[in-house]
Design a protein around this nucleic acid. Structure first.
Length: 419
RNA sequence: GUGGGUGUAGCUCAGUCGGUAAGAGCGCUAGGUUGUGGCCCUAGAGGUCGUGGGUUCAAUUCCCAUCACUCACCCCA
């Protein structure tokens, strides 16, 4: 039996977890400041939700889902993506009928499972932050969503962020672009890479996003989406760009940006961290999905959101050498110098903790010196020393571990000393 | 799913062209200081050399498979 964590998964151990907690706290603070409320949905859903939501031509649905049949013969899939479950909850609870629009949700470090080939920044289970904003198509809501994500990274201290945006239009203008693109690509069909040849019929727009240099050269002059936007979509896109400039968010227009999920309409965006290398430098991305809520069975409702990966954010913090504040677990270490002090030390430890002071003690019969070393390793700011000498006098020695100064404090006043 | 690289102590890594080569540094434990951490010194503990098979008198070393990590694709966070 293999007792290791399965491929592409990992245990977050103390030392790592504190970094995650910090990132989560920053996200919660930013999201709630923007007026978003936390939502928690199941880690698994009916497979059909993702097939309809994410789109069955996507890689995610075609080859990356953890799908199984449960004992009740239900077809179940582990959440490969954050948006559709939130949309499902929104529809199921008929929030559209009872809440004033728009409705704003965030989710925090939720597990996402996809069957992929793992490498740096790519796992089979990773965790995402995200927000979803339902009920408005106002370009200012697009700006809010991008602003929120940008603020999140800014407050983490990330500097090397690049924002890319594009518009993928609505189904109407997308159809006319699709036709023009198909005609253009059909002529060079035989020269495209094999995966792009497959894409030609299914989803030709994805070909523009192909990283293959030869394909990029072939599609250099291909018709681009923004030239085919209808009046409404074009205006929407202009308004979004104008608003971003207004609040000083720098962005790069990437006319080839196409995201891997089918539900996007209009605004699409990605945030890269340039301190990270390779294609795994996308730490967050999202866009508008005006047809999705209807697709899941709700009324026609516009929506927009993003997802951002916890592990990649952490890699970015590391790459940019940003110090993460780490809390201290131990303020006071209670050192037992003689066995006869054990009982008194137990009471002191209890009282310190009851008074909300982080305290710890020694349970093995280690030497005085070893206990001091242990206190040092725990990062204790003070060590309370209790032995037969102190017991007789009714005091403890309080040692300041940084300065090395020690003073006698009566046992009765010890808690007060640290408050 | 495709193609490369790697896998030796808790960590970072040496090493064996098949035969007394199981090693270093850091960390850990104890002592030097019979009641004082961080520096220094000494000693000690700790390894199925990823796992399983094969070749051989002999495999950690060669071969095959497998697992994991890693890099490049694909795609994404």
């Amino acid at each position: 039996m293999d007792m290791r964590a399965p491929r592409g998964t990992y245990d977050a151990m103390p030392g790592q977890v504190e970094r995650f907690q910090y990132i989560e706290e920053v996200f919660k603070s930013v999201a709630e400041r923007f007026g978003y409320k936390e939502i928690r949905t199941p880690v698994f859903e009916h497979t059909e939700l993702f097939e309809r939501g994410v789109g069955d031509t996507t890689d995610i649905v075609q080859k990356e889902m953890y799908t199984f049949e449960d004992k009740g013969e239900r077809n179940i899939t582990l959440r490969p993506e954050g948006t559709s479950p939130v949309v499902r909850a929104f529809v199921e609870h008929k929030i559209y009928g009872q809440a004033a629009m728009p409705v704003k949700y965030y989710y925090k470090a939720i597990p996402i499972m996809r069957y992929e080939r793992p490498q740096a920044g790519r796992l089979r289970q990773h965790h995402q932050f995200g927000i979803e904003l339902f009920g408005t198509n106002d370009p200012r809501s697009d700006i809010e969503v991008i602003d929120l994500l940008n603020t999140f990274y800014e407050e983490l201290g990330l500097k090397q962020i690049e924002v890319q945006i594009n518009s993928v239009g609505c189904p109407k203008c997308r159809e006319s672009h699709r036709e023009a693109l198909y005609d253009f690509l059909y002529d060079v069909k035989d020269e495209l890479c094999s995966t792009c040849q497959d894409r030609l019929d299914k989803n030709p727009m994805r070909i523009l996003d192909c990283k293959n240099p030869k394909d990029q050269e072939l599609t250099k002059d291909a018709p681009i989406m923004i030239d085919y936007l209808c009046g409404d979509c074009s205006l929407h896109y202009q308004e979004v760009k104008k608003g971003l400039s207004l609040i000083n968010i720098e962005y790069i227009e990437n006319t080839r940006l196409v995201r891997g999920l089918d539900y996007y309409t209009n605004t699409a965006f990605e945030f890269c961290n340039k301190a990270l290398s390779g294609p795994s430098n996308v730490i967050g991305g999202g866009g508008r999905y005006n047809g999705l809520i209807e697709e899941i069975g709700g009324p026609e409702t516009p929506g927009i959101g993003f997802g951002s990966g916890l592990e990649r954010i952490d890699l970015a913090l590391e790459a940019e050498e940003i110090e993460v504040p780490i809390k201290d677990y131990c303020e006071v270490f209670v050192l037992i110098a003689d066995d006869m002090a054990k009982e008194k030390a137990l009471a002191i430890l209890h009282n310190l903790r009851k008074s909300k002071i982080a305290a710890d003690t020694e349970y093995t019969e280690r030497s005085f010196r070893a206990q001091m070393k242990h206190a040092d390793r725990l990062g204790a700011k003070y060590t309370v020393i209790l032995g037969s000498i102190e017991l007789e006098k009714g005091v403890v020695l309080v040692r300041n571990m940084k300065s090395g100064n020690q003073e006698e404090i009566s046992i009765a006043n010890i808690v007060k000393y640290f408050l």
